[in-house]
């Protein structure tokens, strides 16, 4: 489309990790790019950019969402939590600590998405307590290093479940 009829920017505000952020974005900017390129929070990662890998997962109003498929303009007024918002006052969240305890990563690229997805599960009774339930609920987060067993164990620790296959 030529510049004469390029869509105008839209003024939106997002509450990101508790801080109100006002920005003007073209309609075709996805939340992932708004967070990384405009707000400067690069913890959230771009993997496939098509909703298949889960590296870009953030919490929107408490729910895990692929930020690569979410237009920023749609989320005007929403509450966004990225991986940078999980620690409080310099203290790792219990889930982050569990990832450390269980060595739940190798290269770490998928970890921000794993952590945000798993954060949604912590107080969610609709997801059962077995290892299989956790694996199913986390299947939208791909780990090419294959750290799944330790990721599952970390999540089970943070959820207070012993799990069947402790590492």
């Amino acid at each position: 489309m030529d510049s004469n009829n390029a869509p105008t920017d839209v003024a939106i505000s997002l509450r990101v990790n508790g801080t109100l952020r006002k920005l003007d974005v073209p309609p075709n900017v996805v939340l992932l790019d708004a967070l990384r390129e405009r707000i400067g929070l690069t913890g959230t990662k771009k993997g496939c950019d098509h909703g298949q890998c889960g590296a870009c997962t953030v919490l929107i109003n408490g729910q895990a969402v692929n930020s690569c498929l979410a237009l920023a303009v749609v989320h005007d007024g929403d509450d966004i939590t990225t991986v940078e918002g999980l620690a409080r006052d310099g203290e790792l969240s219990p889930l982050q600590q569990a990832f450390l305890d269980h060595d739940a990563y190798q290269c770490g690229y998928c970890t921000p998405g794993q952590l945000t997805s798993a954060t949604e599960l912590l107080n969610n009774d609709s997801v059962g307590s077995s290892d299989a339930d956790v694996a199913e609920a986390m299947s939208g987060n791909i780990c090419r290093c294959g750290a799944y067993k330790n990721i599952r164990a970390a999540i089970q620790q943070a959820r207070g479940n012993p799990g069947l296959n402790q590492s």
Partner: peptide, 12 residues
Amino acid sequence: LLQGASRQLRNR
């Protein structure tokens, strides 16, 4: 529904 897509996709 629960056998479709991933949790993140189903949330949206």
